[in-house]
Design a protein around this nucleic acid. Structure first.
Lengths: 132, 132, 132, 132
DNA sequence: GTGGTCTAGACCACG
DNA sequence: GTGGTCTAGACCACA
């Protein structure tokens, strides 16, 4: 796990998981947090690849994934930009949350937990973490 | 995604994830639900393979994974059996819950949700479902 | 793990390991301990199989293994007998001990333990066990 | 039993035991001896398979086993690496020693040796070897 | 009949 | 190029 800065963006890459997924996730988070503004240009594939010391191939893969999710747009000859539609970003956030919650509930139920127990698990976990 | 029945067990397999992982997951749930009792025999490698229309190799991979997790015991020449230790099954359940909760919290946080919002999402989802 | 008595012999069989090996081991031990005298007849394949509730096949396998090691002799139409040569039994014991010690030393050395450390490991294990 | 060299590593394989287990055992020893340093890359699955003249599948099996024991980490697209944690390697060493000692004591006891005799056997063996 | 190992060769995900 | 999954089919150990 090491940390690298490229422009205003900070990345933590862990080589034991797919790098392109980590780029997508951390870039998306930066957008949702507002670290990159709507409509702003993000680093070019080559630039980011160099900054992260990964192959351009990997960055390209990540950018294609983000475009597929409607978070970015590429303009030929100009580069890649965050979508300028706040609505689209918010839609992405809600859609992802919905998917993640659905998946979580399904898994916990299949392990035999009731709704009350699921919420209890979350609460107790939160306390554990706070104590650290 | 298609559904297949083998003895008292129902499996839903799709090709977007490793088949052996789906077998492990669905068989584990069946055990946790009590569809198969402690100490009981599960279908033989060949039998399940034929029922699911996959190679015995794939089922074997799944069964070995379950044995590593302490859920089953194999007796050469006799078959594969659910562990008779209720404690081990419960340990598995807790371990899985921990893993699932960790993954869920990480994903929700990376989407920018706070702890309070996460619990709120779960509550509102629960109400939606109750209204259906 | 359950225990069964056949004539003067007591067996503890654990289904997670090869049964025929357990029969060989426990029968050999009984011979070395003198629970069965030199030249004595041991139960017939069928008799032992019935007593242990395993298939005659398995007992046959065990008996062949013991004969291969020179511990028993079969006399057509009369049954299977412990060798009457004390020398042969003792030779077996020494030969086995030699093999086991050699194997043990090789493994421990390959794990990087020196002779002194190996003996130390044995001593400390002995203390652990005594405390239980 | 034949011997094969792959890079700096030497392997002795025989067909009387599972090949993948022999790979795990011999590779582990090489790590414990320091023949491969912490964090270093080990031969790729295909490379080792070719060198040992076995199928990549068999080598893969061995590598996955080592990963489960915490000895290695795999990075898709990059290769398999020894863990960089000295602690994990040491934990593995202790765990293996425990297993080997347990097995040894069980075998010697079943041959009718007492603790004192077992240690005596080791000592006398040591003297024999020193005289050679 | 049971589980377990191995081969040969395909196809995928990732860098 | 790397690791990972899957198929098809052989052969072994054990009951």
């Amino acid at each position: 796990m090491d940390e690298r800065q490229v422009g205003a963006l900070r990345f933590q890459l862990d080589l034991s998981q797919p790098i392109y997924e980590q780029i997508v996730e951390q870039m998306s988070r930066a957008i949702l947090r507002g670290d990159i503004g709507l409509g702003e240009k993000i680093p070019s594939v080559r630039e980011l690849a160099q900054g992260l010391r990964v192959t351009p191939n990997t960055v390209m893969h990540a950018y294609q994934e983000m475009e597929r999710q409607g978070l970015t747009e590429t303009r030929r000859g100009q580069g890649t930009f965050i979508t300028s539609s706040r609505q689209r970003v918010e839609a992405f956030r809600q859609q992802e949350a919905h998917r993640v919650v659905t998946e979580f509930l399904a898994k916990m139920r299949s392990l035999g937990f009731t709704e009350a127990e699921i919420i209890e698990q979350l609460r107790s976990r939160r306390q554990e973490e706070e104590m650290q």
